[in-house]
């Protein structure tokens, strides 16, 4: 039971934080298919920073985890500038721009990992071995029956993500910036006429998205898998897009969807273990999240209300 809770949460939260990033971008009117590439690039920068910082701080420094988070967020948001430039400044088609970012991210991170490994170790491996960050258990809460598992063996990431998610919710719904951001996604001309800067708002929204995706990416690399390698591109970004679509572009509902994804996955996984299936069969089981995503999309897509102006290229002179 505890394992289900622990695994479920550690799968759900990176998805969630990336999905929030997607929500920021899409609600500002920019289609965001680049989550996959952004999380990968964030993870790459984070992992690389961990590898490099270890030389100075040693392998067991408690600061590594925080350095990784900051580096991952910076990496993701820097890389997202490409998407922002293409969509906001160059008025490129946003779907294509997303694919450009994903393609570039995969190619660049794989290439740079080889190059950097070549420099550091003399061996052109495409992996950064960074290990798993340390965990902790919340004293009292973890004693609660059934749900106590949620508070056992937590990664520091999980707390950080929850705090940031809460802040993101506040920023989107309660502040001036959020009001303007959401206006961009519904009718950018309204903001323009009211004296707001549509391009700037969208640009910032995309960079926030990049930072959040980067955080999600480094969480996966540093907590779930323990390495950075091309295997990080296994579809987390697309799953979180699916999550935000069921979540109807709203943060609380998306949270519920991510938890559902996470726990559904860990429940099936544990079941398979219990049944003692041979390892080949895990491949078959691994299609479940994707099949589930498709099925859910079939049921939910029609009833959703995406932001009205999402994907439209904002042109001041058009009325």
């Amino acid at each position: 039971m505890d394992t289900i809770m622990i695994d479920g949460l550690s799968f759900a939260l990176p998805l969630f934080i990336m999905a929030i990033g997607g929500i920021y971008s899409e609600r500002s009117g920019i289609v965001m298919l680049a989550l996959e590439g952004l999380q990968g690039f964030g993870a790459f920068v984070g992992a690389m920073t961990v590898i490099l910082s270890r030389f100075y701080l040693g392998n067991s420094s408690p600061y590594l985890i925080y350095i990784a988070m900051v580096a991952g967020m910076i990496g993701g948001s820097l890389f997202s500038i490409i998407h922002a430039l293409l969509c906001v400044k160059f008025k490129a088609r946003q779907v294509i721009s997303g694919v450009v970012v994903n393609t570039l991210a995969v190619a660049l991170t794989t290439f740079l990992t080889s190059v950097i490994n070549g420099i550091i170790t003399g061996e052109a491996s495409n992996k950064f071995q960074i290990g798993v960050s340390s965990r902790f258990t919340v004293p009292v809460l973890s004693e609660i029956p059934i749900f106590g598992g949620l508070f056992k063996n937590m990664y520091p990431f999980e707390i950080v993500i929850l705090v940031i998610a809460l802040y993101c919710w506040y920023l989107l719904y309660k502040t001036k910036f959020g009001l303007r951001l959401r206006a961009c996604g519904e009718n950018p001309h309204s903001l323009d006429a009211a004296g707001g800067d549509v391009g700037k708002t969208q640009f910032i929204a995309i960079m926030i998205c990049g930072a959040l995706s980067g955080l999600g990416g480094i969480f996966i690399a540093y907590s779930v898998s323990g390495i950075f390698s091309p295997t990080i591109y296994m579809g987390y970004g697309y799953l979180s897009i699916a999550a935000l679509i069921f979540g109807n572009w709203k943060i609380p509902r998306t949270f519920a969807v991510c938890l559902f994804f996470g726990f559904a996955r860990s429940v099936v996984y544990q079941l398979l273990l219990k049944l003692g299936m041979p390892s080949n069969y895990t491949d078959l089981f691994l299609i479940l999240p994707y099949v589930l995503t498709l099925l859910l999309l079939i049921f939910f897509s029609k009833h959703n209300h995406p932001p009205r102006a999402v994907g439209e290229i904002f042109d001041k002179s058009k009325r």
Binding site: E186, A193, R319
Partner: peptide, 12 residues
């Protein structure tokens, strides 16, 4: 200025 096409956010 009141524009010919209103510049309003419909769901606000």
């Amino acid at each position: 200025m009141v524009h010919q096409h209103f510049k309003l956010v419909d769901n606000y």
